[in-house]
Amino acid sequence: MPTMTLLQAISDALRYEMRRDERVFLLGEDIAEFGGAFKVTKGFVEEFGKQRVINTPISEAAIIGGAIGAALNGLIPVAEMQFMDFITNGFNQLVNVAATTAYRWGLPVPIVVRGPVGGGMSAGPFHSRSAEAWFAHTPGLKVVFPAFPADAKGLLIAAIRDPNPVLFFEHKGLYRKIREDVPEGEHFVPLGKARIVRPGTDLSIITYGRMVHIALEVAARLEDEGASVEVVDIRTLVPFDEATVFDSVQRTNRVVITHEATLTAGFGAEIAARTADKAFEYLDAPIRRVAAFDAPVPMAPSLEQAMLPSAEKLLDTCRQVLEY
């Protein structure tokens, strides 16, 4: 089994699906000869040609709207946002056209809109945002946020084959940082299934994206302190795998939810509310959340590190919950 970075695994999934199904094509800014800002589609135009790897103007509404129209005409477009921050320019297409088409018309819109998100690179307020909660709040859109290369490949393949519009978030801090064995060829990870990435008995950390890796680091440190911490990577926000999360909470009786996105109305609030609703009687401590401070993502490293959730903040909160 080859070892791949998250970025290579995403490329591998795209290449595999494009070879398998000629209806799959790509569109986005600078994705053809240039290979994309992060080189996810490097070499694609040489293999698949400019008809299936379409460079677009800086027009996110045209990219996403164009993808929707192509999907209505029988193709399977995968649109790249150069940075997911720019998805706001195509917001109308996603929340009003893509998200309502199945409901109103009964027609599939099998599009994937994928791209890099997240902070930690001093990229400032417009290249660092975690935008997933906007879309999780819009019925009709699926929201995927992988943390590991093998999952990224399997989930992206599932997203491409899904008849619904899927938003696929890739933390750019993980692109080249995380490396693991990734199955060659066919690898399908169904949307809506969480994964226990570290089993434990005393506390559950529910998380996704980059925070999965911080949670694993915190769990290892807490083990040294004698606590057994379970880490659940939800992998997809929509559909949300309640069963795996509630099962974990029912076994550990303590829960901390963490994400890199800002706190207020973040997806952690949804997980907390559902946990309180459905698993209240199993809880031995209040549900706590660790998320970014409610502010735009600042540029200077000193500010950004203060604003984003850190291992220290998560560790501190976990200790409080364990001691409650």
Binding site: S59, G66, A67, I68, G69, A71, L72, P77, Q93
Partner: peptide, 9 residues
């Protein structure tokens, strides 16, 4: 843009 995408397909 949707109609344009249909035409592109």
């Amino acid at each position: 843009p949707v109609a344009v995408g249909y035409a592109l397909a």
